[in-house]
Amino acid sequence: MVADPLTARSAVSHVAAADGIALALERWRGERSPSLLFAHGFGQTRHAWNGAARALAAQGYDAVTFDARGHGGSDWVPRGEYHMEQFVDDLLRVASVSTSSDGRRPVMVGASMGGLLGLVAAGEADPDHPPFSALVLVDITPRWETKGVERILGFMRAHPDGFADYDAAASAIEAYLPHRRERKTEAQLKPLLRQGDDGRLHWHWDPALLDGVVAESERYQPQLFQAAARVKVPVLLLSGARSDVVSSHTVDEFLRLVPHARHVSLADATHMVAGDANDAFTNEVASFAETLSRS
């Protein structure tokens, strides 16, 4: 019997990265193996996974979410010096504390930036000792559609002075995601915003990220292709049929690089797959994890 997701409970802790940065981690304890490790997209927080983590925890899975450095409850890097290698190291550190009680490495579920970090971590690891037992890539491939990424970055840069109140932030999200039927409530927005010294509400990520990771993204693309070609663990690619970041072209290219990967397109989803179609997304992840637990 599947438990009510609303009854699922989590605990928040912090894990120290190699350079001392504190990473905020949230864990829903379960007994099913392997555990599920969720890595969010650029500019998001671990709360992007709340619906999926609760639902999967209600099915007995051990679910772990965390805030990448510079995001949410994790520390910002001094002087704003962010590089992809730091994020990959952080992901490996969190993976090491997300191992199931039976010793199995977690299934890494990564959206957008989180998925790219997972590819690098898995592809560059010792093939005999992979950091993950499998990968779920959520609407991301080593090559992305530039127009879609520019739209996302445009939204992230659109409010440098923040918002006067939660209602203003909700209106901004509503304009950015017009297909969403429900307007964000203050309770839903609180984990996504922080109050600045100016008294205004700002997104819960370090603005310096836009000048660091984003500026270097094109430089990393050859590394992403090479890493993807070396991934040996089971891979599931979940894409949004209405996404402007992943296309049939980038999916086909990825499947040639990783021929053992399985691809599922979710009809009602844009790039924000879990937010747009959480039930369908959760079902696909649970089904994939079930096949792994039997292997």
Rank of each mutant, 00 (worst) to 15 (best):
G196I: 00
V97A: 05
W203R: 10
L91Y: 05
E124R: 10
F66C: 00
L117E: 07
G30H: 00
Y220N: 14
P178K: 07
A55Q: 09
G115M: 00
R256K: 13
S100M: 00
G51K: 10
V94D: 01
L137N: 06
G60F: 09
M84C: 07
H204F: 03
H179S: 10
W28T: 11
N278D: 12
V109A: 06
R79S: 14
D206G: 07
A16I: 06
L177Y: 12
P106R: 03
Q44S: 13
A11P: 08
M108F: 07
D244W: 07
E81Q: 15
L224W: 13
A122T: 04
G196W: 03
S171G: 12
F288H: 04
S243E: 10
A267T: 09
S287L: 03
R194P: 07
R180E: 11
F66A: 05
A16S: 13
Q59L: 13
F288L: 01
G30L: 07
I152W: 10
A164T: 13
P106D: 05
A57F: 04
G154W: 05
L56H: 01
S133A: 11
E81C: 12
S265T: 14
A261Y: 05
H159F: 14
A172Q: 02
V94G: 03
D197S: 15
D197L: 14
R9I: 04
R69K: 04
L224G: 07
A16N: 14
P78T: 08
M84A: 12
V233P: 03
K184Q: 15
D75H: 08
R105A: 12
M84P: 03
Y176E: 15
N278S: 13
